[in-house]
C-alpha cells in the first residue's frame, strides 16, 4: 500500500469519527442536529470547492455525470444527521461501532444483491465470520454502556 492510500484511509476514518465529535458539540448548542449537519456540509463544501479551484485533485477529462450520482451527498447528509441523533444517546464510541456494523452488513449485501452496478457475488465464509465478530463487538459495547447507565455512582 502506498503513502497516498494510507493517508486516505487515516483521513477517512479519523474524519468520520472526529467529525461526529465536532458535530455533537455544535448540535448541543444549536438545539437541532439538522442545523449542525448543515453547518458541517457548508464548511466542508466550501473547503473542497476552494481546493478544486486551486487545482488540487484534478486529473483526467471531465464528463457530465448522470443526475443519480449526485445522491451521494443526500446519503451523506442522512448519515451524518442520523448518526448525530444516535451518538447523543450512545456516546461517540458505541455510535461509531454501531454505524460500523451497518456499514459492514451493507458492504456485504451490495455485491450479494448485485446492486449499483456491482458484480453479483455471495459473501465468503471469512466475510460472514468477520461480520459476526463485529456484531459481538457492538453487543459487548452496548452491554457495557447499559451497565454503566444502570450503576449509580
Amino acid at each position: 500500500m502506498n503513502l497516498g492510500l494510507l493517508l486516505g484511509t487515516l483521513g477517512a476514518g479519523i474524519g468520520l469519527a472526529a467529525g461526529l465529535a465536532f458535530n455533537v458539540r455544535l448540535a448541543r448548542a444549536l438545539g437541532t442536529p439538522l442545523a449542525a449537519t448543515l453547518v458541517n456540509f457548508v464548511v466542508g463544501g466550501v473547503l473542497l470547492a476552494l481546493l478544486w479551484l486551486a487545482g488540487v485533485g484534478r486529473e483526467g477529462p471531465a464528463h457530465l455525470p448522470p443526475l443519480w450520482m449526485l445522491t451521494g451527498g443526500l446519503l451523506g447528509a442522512t448519515y451524518v444527521t442520523l448518526n448525530l441523533i444516535g451518538a447523543a444517546r450512545l456516546g461517540v464510541g458505541v455510535g461509531t461501532v454501531a454505524a460500523t456494523l451497518g456499514q459492514l452488513l451493507v458492504a456485504l449485501a451490495l455485491p450479494a444483491l448485485g446492486w449499483l452496478g456491482q458484480a453479483q457475488r455471495l459473501p465468503s465464509a471469512a466475510e460472514g465470520l468477520s461480520a459476526l465478530l463485529l456484531l459481538a463487538a457492538v453487543a459487548l459495547l452496548a452491554g457495557d454502556r447499559q451497565r454503566a447507565a444502570g450503576r449509580p455512582r
Binding site: 484534478r58 486529473e59 464528463h63 450520482m69 451521494g72 442522512t78 448519515y79 448518526n83 451497518g102 451493507v106
Partner: peptide, 24 residues
C-alpha cells in the same frame, strides 16, 4: 445508528462513480 452506517457503503459506491465521471 446501525441503519445510518448502512448508508456509507452506498455513498462510497455513488461518489466513486461520480469521481470517475468528473475526473476530480
Amino acid at each position: 445508528t446501525v441503519l445510518a452506517g448502512g448508508l456509507l457503503p452506498l455513498q462510497f459506491a455513488v461518489n466513486g462513480a461520480l469521481a470517475d465521471h468528473l475526473g476530480s
